[in-house]
Design a protein around this nucleic acid. Structure first.
Lengths: 246, 246
DNA sequence: ATCGAAGGATTGTTGAACAATCCGTAAATT
DNA sequence: AATTTACGGATTGTTCAACAATCCTTCGAT
């Protein structure tokens, strides 16, 4: 279930972990590489497993089990849980444990409400040529994935597309919110095992939105995106009907 | 500094805490009152002190001190810190401690970017008559506060106004995001000790936006709000110039 | 079949311990 | 005198062990 690889090194220091995680700045401006704390690494590992579908919605996450699996203390796992719960990836039931979050009917609508607000706003404001290029890149990435019939890649390409749209705003907070929302959606897709055709359907929309964006017709692009999201929500709600019957 | 009142009851159960906090629902649908965990109560207490300005931006929060002050364990304080950090109310410097967050120049702009996205979107979508009534109520609340020259009340009325706008969307996630954003702004105001006149200035705007909303002219209301937020950000950025020099 | 009483398991919370890290100060060096 | 080095105290990061409180299941009684 969980990875067999322990989170903490057996002894001594870790040689050179991928340290692109975070960095703090001293008063003098000296850059200090922030080694992610163990708790953060636990959260990262769980986030990864959630994204990969290794942990499906509804699954119970027992503190002691995860602590052993990852070779860390129960308290540390707890800290990770607090973080994941604040991201809504996990739900805490007092005295009962934490469970992988599961999007109910209302949640799907809610998530789309957030997406509409954020994505449309970002699109309407436009972005630098580089930002637009990133959107275009995501569109092409999707086309390639479709050509190769790689469903997995198609899904991530689609997420890149919407991520790139939000990134146009250049707002760390919006990016982080969007990141969380996309993580929630990934959770849902794994639960519902959404049809691979699902994304195919939206490739032309992405193209159209991107074209409008490149042409500087921001309002039209925004309207297209809005319609896209409305339609997407409807489709997903149907899918949900047969999925969320527990 | 911190409240002298301990967070945990000296013994036995708490008689009847204000239990409007959260409630979980069993499979059968039975309602279970969720007694907030100690960690959550610590987080609540800290949030309160942050909102009241008892803890100013930049202040260091020492784990052991807070643990003693609130009569809880250091580990519990840590859990609360994780939560507050995820809300950006507090910043964690690895191995150095946690500090009350402080909005820098870029943060002010970023916060307003989020507000523009969320508030304008909610306003453009409109809401039920009750939702609109809540917005109107906040406007009147502001007028009363202005008449009474109650700066404190004027500020909260303004937050109610913007909160009511977002609430129109009926989205728990948007509400929670807005709540966090407003909490961040409160933090900033305490740091900058913004002029009391500040809000006075915007009373007519609130009235105008509300009127447009009540008239069903959603797009116009949205445009007004957008302009309002742009102007507000400019004002605040000026104020910031003399405040964030550290 | 319904209800209630153990029993076991898990969570919530604490307290203590220890290594790692940081910061300020004093000593040593240039 | 200025800079570097070394040291010591303080605080964080993390673990461990314990215990009460709570939940879920099973078993037994009605």
């Amino acid at each position: 279930m969980a990875s067999s690889e322990p989170i903490v090194p057996s002894s001594s220091v870790s040689p050179r972990g991928s340290a692109n995680h975070a960095a703090t700045r001293t008063a003098a401006g000296r850059l200090r590489v922030a080694v992610p704390s163990v708790a953060e690494r636990v959260a990262d590992e769980l986030r990864l497993q959630l994204a990969e579908g290794a942990l499906l919605p509804g699954t119970r996450l027992t503190e002691s089990t995860i602590a052993e699996d990852l070779g860390v203390s129960r308290n540390t796992v707890r800290e990770a849980f607090v973080e994941l719960a604040s991201e809504r990836l996990v739900v805490r039931h007092p005295n009962r444990g934490v469970f992988v979050a599961s999007l109910e009917a209302g949640d799907v609508h809610d998530v789309y409400t957030v997406r509409r607000a954020i994505e449309v706003s970002a699109l309407r404001a436009g972005g630098s040529p580089e930002d637009v290029a990133a959107v275009r890149a995501a569109v092409e990435e999707g086309k390639r994935a479709a050509a190769a019939s790689d469903d997995e890649a198609l899904g991530t390409a689609n997420q890149h597309f919407h991520g790139a749209i939000v990134a146009m705003a250049g707002s760390p907070r919006l990016n982080s919110i969007m990141g969380q929302v996309l993580a929630e959606m990934r959770l849902f897709f794994h639960k519902a095992t959404v049809d691979a055709q699902f994304y195919q359907h939206y490739l032309p929309d992405n193209e159209a939105i991107c074209l409008a964006l490149e042409a500087g017709e921001l309002d039209r692009a925004a309207d297209l995106l809005q319609a896209y999201l409305d339609r997407s929500e409807d489709n997903l709600s149907e899918v949900h009907g047969e999925a969320g019957t527990d």
